[in-house]
Design a protein around this nucleic acid. Structure first.
Length: 535
RNA sequence: CGCGGGAUAGAGCAGUCUGGUAGCUCGUCGGGCUCAUAACCCGAAGGCCAAUGGUUCAAAUCCAUUUCCCGCUACCA
């Protein structure tokens, strides 16, 4: 369906976040995971595009703006600033920030709507049904209790609604969707999420309303301007708009040629249904290919409790970043939590984990090794090569397998496993030093052996830093710089060549005659002082 | 019969799909080392893997039943 084959590009999206309020930790979580993936792609020399943005229409936004005595657009503009600022503090390298109020987006939405309209999949009908205001959703009879209460909101009775809406023929696509799920088992991940969707679809799909009346803040439907397009229909299309280059003409075909279908929609589990059911159906209707993968990750809790304003235990991402820095925050959420499952934030665990892994295991390892080089080798880099190590050498063994192991983990979004595997090399290196005791070798005057040991360790540190760079780019920079490299993991152009990846991801790459820099702690231990408070 | 997630050492978790000596991090206790960010290495204590029943030569893992916990009432990923 796409024309003009553009260079192959790995495209990942975060949700377009709803601008009802300033960003919260959950948005940060999704986004930092997406960023790590994109960085991993770029590290390998692949062309990659990270799409994020904001979803700005809908009644809720309109009401929020009014309550702040602002025009809706002014309100959105303010919130957008805070999102962009958070992404900057989190060291997110996004390529597109797609706003659903952008003028290009209007064109894309019109053109897409037109396709679906021409297909005959949109029809006008009376929306009749039980509406749960708390859910903002129409409910099936079977979803309600006998006295018409929503099962989630048992304290609120569903309301009978009867209004004119446009509908999308979702029901028409049930069979096709089921075939897609069956033929593409990788489409919805993780498996538990996939099962939920399968279950939902198997119960039968109902057409859903895609327009609202009596709502100004949204795109009017060209065919019938008193209707406004339902916010979700509009928001999902934001992914398409985002494919356009910043100064490119707004045109659906053009957008599609720039990287469609998208490789991965990274989302929270709450919006899975929209991405795994409604969105593919909309695309089928428009005769477009569907995205390759939708991954619904888990939710975060704080100290075991759901975060919420009512509980007053929200975790302010800005404060967290101010206090600990982007690397620490990125590392914690990717390392401490099984991606896909719910995970907990606990500040003392946060400090423990960061100190144990980054400050002590890896950071101190570099520090002690460089210290010994200065003391025992006058700071000269060892002059050895991979071939000088027997195959049973523990670091060589672990290091040689690490690159491919970590590649698989990143590919499967198993960030935790990637971190664990990498840290194992650091751990083995600390042991390696103790086992070989360079300080003893020094007293015995065994200079060559000292260099032999230190090279292996230094190389292991380098490899660990390289493979961790998608997650903790600043730390990796600091390590690489102390090792005498001049590259910068935040400036990907210098590292984007595939041959570089082939070399750097292999154990044994460290060249001789390194221009080693002075040993300085690359990651200072964190202290648990006052607990990050509610905003 | 609402939907979903969970119950494994003091704490937090992996392992469950593809049955076969129960593992990781932090913490605790003891020892070692001295190159280092009070770091690093070694060792130990600590688990009837929620319960019951079943399948099997063998079950944390498969099947059945049960108990308990947590979300789903919006800031929401």
């Amino acid at each position: 369906m796409t024309n003009n084959p553009a260079p192959q590009k790995f495209v990942v999206t975060t949700p377009l976040y709803y601008v009802n309020d300033v960003p919260h930790i959950g948005s940060a979580y999704t986004t930092l995971a997406a960023d790590a993936l994109i960085r991993w792609q770029r590290l390998q020399g692949n062309s990659a595009l990270l799409i994020t943005g904001t979803d700005e229409h809908g009644q809720k936004i309109e009401r929020t703006a009014i309550s702040k005595d602002l025009a809706p657009q002014e309100h959105c503009d303010q919130i957008v600033v805070s999102f962009k600022s958070l992404w900057e503090q989190l060291n997110i390298q996004y390529d597109r920030f797609s706003r659903t109020t952008a003028s290009e987006h209007k064109v894309i939405v019109d053109q897409f709507f037109e396709r679906v309209w021409e297909k005959g999949d949109i029809y006008l009908d009376q929306q009749q049904g039980w509406y749960c205001v708390a859910c903002e959703e129409f409910k099936e009879e079977r979803e309600l209790t006998e006295d018409k209460h929503c099962q989630i909101h048992t304290n609120k009775k569903a309301e009978w609604r009867d209004e004119e809406n446009y509908f999308f023929r979702l029901s028409k696509y049930q069979k096709q969707l089921e075939a897609i799920y069956a033929d593409n088992p990788e489409f919805i991940q993780p498996v538990a999420r996939r099962n939920e969707v399968l279950n939902f679809v198997a119960q039968g799909l109902q057409d859903f309303s895609i327009s609202r009346v009596n709502l100004d803040w949204g795109f009017p439907i060209s065919q019938d301007p008193k209707h406004t397009i339902y916010v979700w229909f509009d928001a999902l299309l934001g992914y398409l708009t985002a494919l356009l280059e910043p100064d490119q003409e707004a045109n659906l075909e053009l957008a599609l040629s720039q990287g469609w279908p998208i490789d991965l929609h990274l989302i929270g589990k709450d919006i899975l249904r929209f991405h795994a059911v409604y969105w593919p159906a909309m695309l089928l209707s428009a005769e477009l290919p569907i995205p390759k993968r939708v991954f619904g990750h888990g939710f975060l809790t704080k100290d075991g409790l759901k975060m919420g304003k009512s509980l007053g235990n929200t975790l302010n991402p800005f404060e967290l970043l101010d206090k600990y820095g982007s690397d620490a925050v990125r590392y914690y959420f990717l390392r401490a939590i099984e991606f896909g499952k719910d995970g907990d934030f606990n500040e003392s665990r946060f400090v423990d984990l960061l100190n144990a892994d980054l400050a002590k295991n890896l950071g101190n390892l570099l520090n002690r090794t460089l210290g010994m080089l200065n003391k025992y080798c006058q700071g000269n880099g060892p002059q050895l090569k991979q071939e000088d190590y027997p195959d049973h050498d523990s670091l060589k063994t672990i290091g040689s397998n690490l690159g491919s192991q970590v590649a698989i983990a990143y590919q499967d979004l198993q960030f935790k496993q990637a971190c664990e595997a990498i840290l194992e090399l650091a751990n083995a290196s600390n042991k390696y030093i103790d086992d070989h005791a360079p300080w003893v070798l020094f007293k015995e005057g065994k200079q060559e052996e000292i260099e032999h040991v230190l090279y292996a360790v230094l190389e292991s540190i380098r490899l660990a830093a390289y493979l961790l760079s998608p997650i903790v780019p600043n730390l990796s920079n600091a390590i690489y710089q102390q090792l005498g490299f001049s590259c910068n993991f935040n400036e990907l152009t210098q590292l984007s060549a595939a041959p570089v990846f082939a070399q750097h991801s292999r154990w044994g790459h460290l060249p001789a005659n390194l221009n080693l820099n002075k040993a300085r702690p690359v990651f200072t231990q964190l202290e648990l002082s006052s607990v990050v408070s509610d905003s």
